[in-house]
């Protein structure tokens, strides 16, 4: 009995390892057709769902078809010029049956469609950068305010409020961004009420509570002896914060920033409402664009064949990036916690 339970518990702990490697392997397997087809150039190819006319008869299509079920050719075969906004792909799906009939003819003569990941990757990076630029100063302000400036009877309820706000589902932030925040931003900065800027700002607001409460916790661990001796030397509050608290809590603060960064990278719902969902390289910061999670959210259920594989490729990229970012934060900055 004892032995059985011990084995069982060890097995369960290993489940986590299995799950993580499982996610990686599964994503990789499903992304394989796209990886084979586009290789590393996928990362810098700004064309998503753009059809090109191959001069030479290419056998690439067969590769794409082999892996998937019977509906897979629909999206690829459809003659799509220029950029493919989300809706367009959805529309295509609705006439699936009609097109499926013509599959055989289509296969032989139509051009093939290229999928490249540059636009969602750029969108993800830019929206995250905006979010961080916006959130870091405010979150630091809140953390300093809570741990050093505010008296206990203010810092306590405000701290609780901040932690509660971190618990609000991200979809709420997205909805609020779409209906209330977006219009305000567009009035101030111009552009539409959806776009990269709005997405980045909403994302920033979403990670503020998370970053602020983690940073505050780590600032609070500064021994009061250190602070008091600095004050006794005649240091001002700012000098204590700058020269005593920040150096002491540095690794915790940076760790919290990187964790928040990881969260922002993979956030779907808060961004999906407000980024616009348009496959276009942004020229201005207020332009609508698209990020990896949003592409997945909008297109996944309706895709098949090569487009699905390309989506898995994107998911894999996102998974690997966020895995690296978070492990970096964990192993490098937050190590001494354990």
């Amino acid at each position: 009995m004892e032995n059985i339970f011990k084995r069982l518990s060890a097995l369960n702990a290993t489940t986590i390892l299995f799950l993580l490697t499982g996610i990686f392997v599964v994503l990789f397997l499903y992304a394989k057709p796209a990886i084979k087809e586009y290789g590393i150039k996928f990362l810098i190819d700004p064309r998503w769902g753009v059809s090109i006319n191959p001069n030479k008869p290419s056998n690439n299509q067969d590769k794409a078809v082999v892996n998937q079920d019977n509906e897979n050719i629909v999206v690829e075969e459809e003659d799509i010029g220029g950029n493919v906004p989300v809706d367009q792909e959805e529309i295509i799906q609705t006439d699936e049956e009609d097109i499926a009939i013509n599959d055989e003819d289509a296969l032989s003569q139509k051009s093939k469609v290229i999928y490249g990941g540059l636009i969602p990757i750029v969108g993800t990076v830019l929206s995250t950068v905006i979010a961080m630029a916006f959130a870091v100063p405010i979150a630091m302000g809140i953390a300093v305010f809570l741990s050093e400036i505010a008296p206990f009877y203010i810092s306590k309820p405000v701290g609780v409020a901040i932690e509660l706000l971190a618990a609000i589902p991200s979809i709420i932030y997205g909805m609020w961004g779409l209906f209330y925040f977006g219009p305000v931003v567009s009035r101030i900065f111009g552009g539409g009420s959806v776009g990269l800027l709005v997405a980045g700002l909403v994302l920033g607001i979403m990670i503020i509570p998370f970053m602020a409460s983690l940073s505050r916790d780590s600032m609070n661990t500064t021994p009061s002896v250190l602070k008091e001796s600095a004050y006794a030397m005649g240091a001002t509050k700012f000098e204590v914060i700058k020269d005593v608290i920040f150096p002491y809590a540095k690794s915790g603060i940076i760790g919290s920033m990187i964790l928040a960064l990881g969260r922002a990278l993979g956030e779907t719902m808060a961004v999906a409402f407000v980024i616009g969902g348009v496959f276009k390289l942004p020229e201005k910061i207020t332009d609508p664009s698209v990020s990896i999670p949003v592409v997945l959210a909008n297109n996944f259920a309706e895709s098949s064949g090569m487009s699905l594989s390309a989506l898995f490729y994107l998911a894999l990229i996102l998974f690997v990036i966020s895995f690296l970012v978070i492990s970096f934060a964990k192993f490098y900055f937050l190590r001494d916690k354990k």
Binding site: A13, I23, G262, G266, F300, A315
Partner: peptide
């Protein structure tokens, strides 16, 4: 395993969906 589990806790939820 502990670290792995912490990393997985912050894995993008949409990736788990895929």
């Amino acid at each position: 395993i502990r670290n792995l589990s912490d990393v997985m806790m912050s894995a993008p939820s949409i990736v788990i969906g895929t």
